[in-house]
Design a protein around this nucleic acid. Sequence first.
DNA 1: AATTTTTACGCAAACGTTTGCATTTGAGGC
DNA 2: GCCTCAAATGCAAACGTTTGCGTAAAAATT
Lengths: 339, 339
Amino acid sequence: MNNSVSIKDIAKKFKCAPSTISRALNDHPAINIETRKTIQEYALKVGYQKNTLSLSLLNNCSMTLGLVLPSITHYHESSILEGMEEILLKSGYLLNICVSNESHTIEKEYIDRLLANRVDGLFISMAQESYDQQLGEHIDRVIQRSLPVIFIDRPNHGVASDRVVTDDYQGAYMATQHLIDMGCQRIAHLHGPSGISVSQQRFMGYQDCLKAHGRQVDVDLIEYVHFSAESAIEATRYLMQGTIKPDAIFGVNDEVCIAAMYVLREMGIAVPEEVAIVGFDDIPLASFGHPPLSSVSRQSRKIGEEAAKLFLSKKDQKLDPVTISLDPKLIIRESSLRS
Amino acid sequence: MNNSVSIKDIAKKFKCAPSTISRALNDHPAINIETRKTIQEYALKVGYQKNTLSLSLLNNCSMTLGLVLPSITHYHESSILEGMEEILLKSGYLLNICVSNESHTIEKEYIDRLLANRVDGLFISMAQESYDQQLGEHIDRVIQRSLPVIFIDRPNHGVASDRVVTDDYQGAYMATQHLIDMGCQRIAHLHGPSGISVSQQRFMGYQDCLKAHGRQVDVDLIEYVHFSAESAIEATRYLMQGTIKPDAIFGVNDEVCIAAMYVLREMGIAVPEEVAIVGFDDIPLASFGHPPLSSVSRQSRKIGEEAAKLFLSKKDQKLDPVTISLDPKLIIRESSLRS
DNA sequence: AATTTTTACGCAAACGTTTGCATTTGAGGC
DNA sequence: GCCTCAAATGCAAACGTTTGCGTAAAAATT
């Protein structure tokens, strides 16, 4: 079944000790240069490949990390992954990907497996179930083992921890401010799943910005959605058929805004003239919407890079927990531009 | 640094042999039921977790697989990953994700690392560089080691191999047929990166369908793009300013079609009245475009599931190479509907 | 030629776990 | 009290690799 050739095999071939082979292959100085060459050539010929597992066992270091995400199909998440990979590629690490699908049970199972496989560190964006119900004992077990854990987007409750996040609050504040600047009076919000930090922060930014301008949050202008476009269809219809007609919508992400614009078109409501719209994430297709969608860009790729860099710096020396908060940037396009 | 407790540690605590602890933890029959209980409770208390690395070494089976993709930010790719995870979760596997970014060098490096980590199998969608330049020796090394390799979307050249693909040819044929049925006369094609199997197959389907209706492919109606929306902007403008005005566009994926629709709006060309459009992939936002985009759905998630299932069946018995070709499905929306 | 130094290699332990086989212990039957 | 048997546990090897230490042979120095 498995054809892989080991150092021992080569040692038998050359009638010498495995240690000699090991040294030859690792360019150890105390080795005859001729012998080394011969062995290296032979190793290449038979396709020898170091078995990292034995080293992981020996050095207590697997050069493998775990990434646990609630989902992966959104641009934001897959960009994080890409950014992470870029840094880890250079550092020799491999990444185990685990999609929890927002389930606490799955998240726990995956973390168990990662621990059993002795990953050197963990990146986690917590599942909604874990987050909502404050289920963190599986995380505690990890921390207790003094394994570096870096939270992405959604930290765990309570304890201090390393985090890489977008400043969602600020981003939402900027978006809302922009809508106010555009003269919008009744700014609705498509609120993300409750309980999730990202949703909460964005709502807070929205709320505080309104308050700063002497306005109150009107519950009739808040509709709850998931992060998917589909979920925003009904919500938007409901919003537009309410007693208070919104003249702007700030959506928890771009998908729901694109769906909202679809509904508004269907209803014959002009964007941005009658309803201005700002989304969040700045997905690549935002620029090509009808009209092009204003959005808060959150440097998704950089989140991944920073998380990876943070791990690399943590790995060596023990540092205090750090929170890296990346500044969002408001990209203004037609969907919110009023003259 | 690492606080993990081993079987040996527990053995010392109980002044017994490691084998006893092992048997106790694994519910081996030849163990005193009292002892077993005590040991299990203790193990739970101190947070013992099996070190899978040692088992991997022993059994030559790491319960880890590798997934090598050119990119991950497209819906299709991340859906494959999700489908794969669903099956592998149940089977106890972990998945190493490797994004080659279309680079042969990176792909090779990743495959080396995966082999060094003794993954039990490999899923690969080949990088454009490897594919274009027919660089396959890194793949050969894997196969030579009789490691199960399953190709996704983009197979390697030549040798027979296990594959899970969409029937891109058929999908493109269906899309073109549909445009012809809608009465379109000059069907343009936004052609994907040349050399890549997916692009080629879709072009072939388009071409053969035209031929089947007694039409010739007009090179003036073909523009090459990448898989990104941006790349389609110029291409579409160029297409529409040419001598032959297309009255339909079949795009290599949905992103380029959404960008194309954006350009057409900008140019004041009506979709679908003047130009009908059909895309490929049926991304979630396709339904919410303006107008909603017709598209060939390719069951991305199922590709991942089937690939994972194929591995599981291959793992046990040696079977002949299999190609699983999933049927695409044409989803007709407004962008191509003419009365 | 004797001594020291250098060079090149072997030995064995270690990482954590499982498992076939051997061994110990205690109980029961005669 | 001796034998048999079963139950419970120990021993040691194995997976692949590295590395400090020991040692032999060769080379360099006196």
